[in-house]
Structures are given as structure tokens and as C-alpha cells.
Design a protein around this nucleic acid. Sequence first.
DNA 1: GAGTGGTCTAGACCACTGA
DNA 2: CAGTGGTCTAGACCACTCA
Lengths: 265, 265
Amino acid sequence: MRVGRTVGTPAGAGRAVPRYVQIADEIVQQIRAGVLKAGDMVPSESELVERYGVAGGTIRKAMVEVRASGLVETRHGKGSIVKDRPPVRLRSSDRFRASHRRGGKAAYLAESEQSGATAKVSVLYIGPMEAPADIAERLGVDEGTQVLARRRLYFRNGTPVETASSYLPWDVVKDIPELFAENPGPGGIYARLEDHGHAFTEFVETLQARPASKAEASELALSPSAPVIHLLRDAVTEEGRVVEVCDTLMAADQFVFQYRIPATD
Amino acid sequence: MRVGRTVGTPAGAGRAVPRYVQIADEIVQQIRAGVLKAGDMVPSESELVERYGVAGGTIRKAMVEVRASGLVETRHGKGSIVKDRPPVRLRSSDRFRASHRRGGKAAYLAESEQSGATAKVSVLYIGPMEAPADIAERLGVDEGTQVLARRRLYFRNGTPVETASSYLPWDVVKDIPELFAENPGPGGIYARLEDHGHAFTEFVETLQARPASKAEASELALSPSAPVIHLLRDAVTEEGRVVEVCDTLMAADQFVFQYRIPATD
DNA sequence: GAGTGGTCTAGACCACTGA
DNA sequence: CAGTGGTCTAGACCACTCA
């Protein structure tokens, strides 16, 4: 099949930056400049083919780039829509201050109020579960031991931004009925644990950033391989016991993390 | 042009998972399983075309996926090589313990020793610089004010993993000649600052993950849009003054962060 | 059912690498 | 120079969305 480069510009020719990158940049610029506003539809691929006078595959690659910028969300039979600019949320280590719990605010809602965004929590599952290996190790129990799992999905302005799974040893939770409820009451589950004599000394958070898997991307409505933050938090009591492990996965573009590290020994 | 689906499996047909994803997964599995070891070349694209009996474009897309996994590095006229598995480095907030500084170890080398990897630091620039806006704000000086900048590039096993830029107000550094040296001596620059009466109360770290820009990707030898961690650290003294801001950019696949958060108020 | 994105093919031409 | 990855085309067929 004799094609393409008989007419027009040379294919991979003396051009430094590929055509599809140029096109992607132009589209991204239009969004940043406000020519395309949040909620607007990006022109359809066939329309872009016409406008730029290139083949469909080229537009296709350009749109992959545009999606990678995170400014756009594409849905199959519909098209691409310019996303609301994610007003990032500060996730401060201060959210674990004991006074917040005594003040009756759960960490999540306490923060959302500050930034003035609509927050929603959807409970996916609360109940017994066999502890996965990594969680079991952190809780100091054997793999497969029954623990209480609390899986939630957090929304912000209607879009899912975070999945969180808490795991607690059964002997810790069995006498605390609130921990089996969707809403554990003022101050959240940490406040309930404190009510029952579990005094915390520290929380240990471990984070890692990596590209989202396909499954994670669809759950958080991200473009595949957009960065996500995987965070594991151990809640440690005075006895040195880990009474909760919280495993959360976040859309990286939605969060900024802040930690205050005491300089004294 | 009548094509493809006259023979073999249907194109986008009743198949749930696209062929290129299947192929990508197979290749990734081979790497994870050790069939392809670190340093091995992945078969060339034309070889894969033959082996899987698909068109070049399909293999091409599969390889994009494989690259996104971060297990492979592709170079133009050469091919794709299986990367050394990044032995991730734990970046613990404990590295700022005062006892480490008094013990004479700089934070970076103190940690590298633990994990037994070859570390190298390359100094890119040490000298005066006009403070960029965000840095100036954190230091509490006007934008454009002269500050001391210390730009370094950190290597691990020969590959660059982190760029770090420290900024210090000029009045703080002008009497501390060690801060102008490539090697500021035992305990690093924080130890020198303490020697000169700057007692630290805390360090505040702010992190965000995002895809690397093209420029950052090339500086850190990453595939473009691989995730990076952008970390800003303020060093706060007893007087409440920020005497250093450290701006670092890290290849996300090389680091795990750990923070201990005191539960008491 | 018209329109949109998603997958795939077959083939051309280019740029880079290394013997 | 031969071999490899990178860009591009033109066109087919599919699945999803929505009126």
C-alpha cells in the first residue's frame, strides 16, 4: 500500500517533535488557556482528523497524550470532556491530633470542611475477612486469621478519589459494636477504640507512588497508569500493639501530603 | 483495503481484554517470573510480531504497556532491556533524628549504608541565586532575594534517582563557610547550622506525586510520564524561622516513604 | 441508528545504534 | 551496513452511548 508521504510533510522526517505531540500540546494549551473550559467536550477524533489533516491513528496517539495530562476524561461512546480542575486536598499529619478526635470530628470530614468541597463516603463492605499476608504481618496475627475489614470509597465533588480499607484484629473489635456500623460515631473509629481503652502513641504511615493498574484506574476513574498513592497506616497503642491497619489508594493528582517531623530526639 | 479479520480471531470482537494487553501481560509475567532476567534483551518487535502472529502496531502498543510497568528500558536503535529491579529505599522520617547528626552521618549516606547500595552524589551547583517565588515565600524573604542554592544529583547503583536543591537565606549562611563546600562535613548541613546556633524544632515535608515532564524524565532516566515524587522540606528553628528549604524530585519507583506521627497533642 | 472511541492490520519511511 | 525502535497512513470492524 503506497501511502502518506507521497504528499505533504515527510513522515518521521527532519522534524524534531512528532506531529502527535504537537497536536496534543495544542489541545492541552487550549484547555489551560481556557478556550476549552471545564465541562466542555473536546472535538471528536474524526473532527480533529479533518481539522489537522492527519490520519486517525495520529489523533489517537495525540489524545493518549492529552489524557495523560489528566486534564480530560474520555468515555467510550461519548467523547472526551474537560475535567474540573482538581482542587487538591492537603492531607496533613495533624489530622491525627487527639484533640480532633475528642472534638468529635472524623479525620476525613474534618479536612473536607476546610477546603469547602462536597464529600461523600460510600461503604463497600464491613465485616469479617481473612487477613491478607501483608496486613496480617502488620497486625501481628497469622495470615488468614479472621479480622474485621472496613472498605470505603471516598468521593469528592462526585468523583471517586480514594479507596480505604481498615483491618482490625477480631479480639479488639468484638466488644465494640460501633465498629460494625457504617458510621462509627463522633471522632471516627479511633475515638471508639480510645473509648475502649486503646490509647494511641503513634501512627506510622508508609507511602509509595506508582502507576495505577487498569483495575485501579477504573475504580478511581483515572486514565490507566496515571499515578496513584498507596498508603498504609499502622495505629500503634501504648502497649506497642498495632490495633488497626488502614490500606488506602488515592488518585495522586488529588492530594498533597504534609508531615511534621519533630527535630528532637 | 480489506484487512485482518478475514482470518483468525475477530478484531475488537467479543474479546474482553485486548490482544495487546494480553501480550504485554505475558511479557511482564516473563520478567516477573525470571524467564527474562535483569540485563536481558526483550525480543525485538519484529520477532514478537512473528511469535504472536499480529501486526507491528499491536506489538508496539503492547510494548508501551510493558514500558509503563517500569520493568524495562527501551532505547531507540537498540531494543528493550530488562531493568535492574529497583531495590526501593526506605525514606524514613527518623533520618532527621538529632542523634544522627551528632553521630556524624549525613541523612543520605546514613540510609544508603543500611541498604547496601552504591551511592553517589554529584554536585551541580553551589552558589548564590535569586529565590524563586515559592521558595522565597517559604523562607519568608522577597522573591528575587539572593539566597544560597545547593543543587545536587543523587545516584544509586549508577542511575540518577533524585535531584535535590537546598535554599538558605544569605544572612544565615554568610558566616558558615562549610555550607559553600561540596562536602559540608559530618552530619551534613543541618549539623553545621546547629553548630552555629540554629536549633531545629521540626521539619515539615510536603509531598506530591505526578507524572514526570519530558525534561524531568530525561534527567532521571525515566520513561516519560512515569511517576515522580516532588517533595519540599522546610527546616524550622526554635525561633520559628525557616532556615532551609529543600526541593527534591525523586523517581517514584525508587522510594518508599515512612512517617511516624505522634498521637499525642 | 448515527456518532464516538477502541482495536487491529499492512505497509511505508524515518532515525538511531553498533559492527 | 543491517537491525531496531518511532512515526504515520488508510482503512476495516467493533463496542459503547444516546436520542
